[in-house]
């Protein structure tokens, strides 16, 4: 079987994110990296392959993004993917969640995966929902925030936390699963894998190549329009100090609590 893993390039967590006032979009310049949540999806694919209960023939990393996004694909390959697919096209810029999910589904259609894995959230977009959009376009079942995944005959047995506690769900393949960051501890790539990543097959495709309807993507094709930004209500800033001498720190905390009659 074939597993496709969705990966995204995001601004490094240490870089301050901001909105570019001239375009109203997120400023995506600066240091960039593979979305850390996606490393858990790659690791989940690797564990399915190594677990042996399923015959995994191929793991394919898939991304939609500008040219620079190849770096996320290289990282994904260094973590274990066999090859990658890069959907890149100027017409996709400014796509909202629904349009991004549609475009990714079109790219995935050409791979006909048995399983699509993705991360619980992107570090920049934080929509938590791409998986559910992709799944419905692919006419596949979808579950998000999965923290345990086991092979159960011709199906997967999954666990995740929903509103009333933990749910266990059995799902027949093909399916789209987003994994939570508690599902596994991603491995580090070996130096050899990092060096070899650029030599693994990487295919770049355009919107037309995968049959995307141009009226459904990009800023114009998106059904949500955002361009107006506001400041949140101001909140009085709290007091923050560094612990240099722990006895003094503790005394300060205690005084603060006593002042407020909390002890």
């Amino acid at each position: 079987m074939k597993i496709c893993v969705l990966v995204k390039e995001v601004p490094d967590a240490a870089v301050e994110k901001r909105i570019d006032p001239s375009t109203g979009r997120m400023d995506r310049s600066g240091e960039r990296n593979l979305n850390p949540y996606d490393t858990h999806a790659i690791e989940a694919a690797m564990q399915l392959r190594e677990g042996g209960a399923l015959q995994v023939d191929e793991i394919v990393a898939v991304t939609m993004g500008p040219e620079s996004a190849v770096r996320a694909l290289h990282k994904a390959v260094s973590l274990g993917a066999d090859r990658s697919l890069h959907l890149s096209d100027g017409s996709l810029a400014g796509s909202d969640v629904a349009a991004t999910g549609y475009a990714l589904a079109k790219a995935l259609e050409r791979e006909s995966p048995d399983l699509v894995l993705l991360g619980q959230q992107s570090d920049d977009g934080e929509c938590y929902t791409i998986g559910a959009v992709v799944a419905d376009h692919l006419r596949m079942p979808s579950l998000t925030q999965v923290v345990k995944l086991e092979v159960d005959g011709d199906a997967l047995r999954l666990e995740r936390q929903a509103e009333y506690g933990y749910d266990t769900v059995r799902v027949k393949l093909p399916a789209v699963i987003s994994v939570g960051d508690a599902i596994n501890e991603p491995r580090y790539p070996s130096l050899k894998a990092i060096m070899g990543a650029k030599k693994k097959p990487l295919e770049m495709v355009s919107a037309v190549d995968v049959g995307i309807d141009a009226s459904l993507v990009g800023a114009d094709g998106s059904r949500v329009h955002c361009g107006e930004f506001k400041e949140p209500p101001a909140k009085a800033a709290g007091q923050v100090f560094e612990d240099e001498n722990t006895d003094e720190t503790v005394a300060k905390i205690v005084d603060w609590l006593v002042e407020r009659k909390l002890i």
């Binding site: 999910g101 938590y128 929902t129 791409i130 559910a132 998000t144």
Partner: peptide, 16 residues
Amino acid sequence: FEIGAGLAARRRAGVT
């Protein structure tokens, strides 16, 4: 979150 996103795909709707 899951239903809203799935419905957006199904009906070509915008979702926030």
